[in-house]
Simulated assay, not measured.
Amino acid sequence: MTSREAVRAVERHVGATPGHTYALGGDAVLVSLSRGGQVVAKRGAGANAARAEAAGLRWLAEHGDVPLPGVHGYDEQWLVMDYVAPGAPSTAAAEEFGRGLAALHLRGAPAFGAPPPDGPADAWMGLAPMRNEPHDDWASFYARHRIEPYVRSAVEQGLFSEDHAAVFDDVCARLPELAGPPEPPARLHGDAWSGNVHWAADGRAWLIDPASYGGHRETDLAMLGLFGTPLLEHILGAYAEAARDAGTPLAEGWRDRTDLHQLFPLLVHAVLFGSGYARQAVAAARRALRA
Rank of each mutant, 00 (worst) to 15 (best):
M1Q: 13
M1P: 11
V7F: 03
A9R: 00
E11V: 13
H13M: 09
G15L: 03
G25R: 03
G26T: 04
V29Y: 01
R35I: 10
R35Q: 13
Q38V: 09
Q38T: 13
A41T: 06
K42T: 08
A45P: 05
G56D: 00
W59M: 06
L60I: 11
V66R: 04
L68T: 13
V84F: 05
R99E: 15
G100P: 07
L104R: 03
L104Q: 11
F112P: 00
P115T: 05
P117E: 13
D118T: 14
G119Y: 03
D122Q: 15
D122N: 12
A123R: 01
A143F: 00
R146N: 04
S153W: 12
V155R: 13
G158Q: 08
G158H: 06
S161P: 01
D163E: 15
V167I: 10
D170S: 15
L175D: 01
P182H: 10
R187P: 03
W193Y: 12
G214T: 00
G215M: 02
A222P: 06
G225Q: 08
G228T: 12
G228Y: 11
L236F: 09
D259I: 00
H261I: 08
H269E: 08
V271A: 03
L272H: 03
S275Y: 09
Y277N: 05
A284P: 01
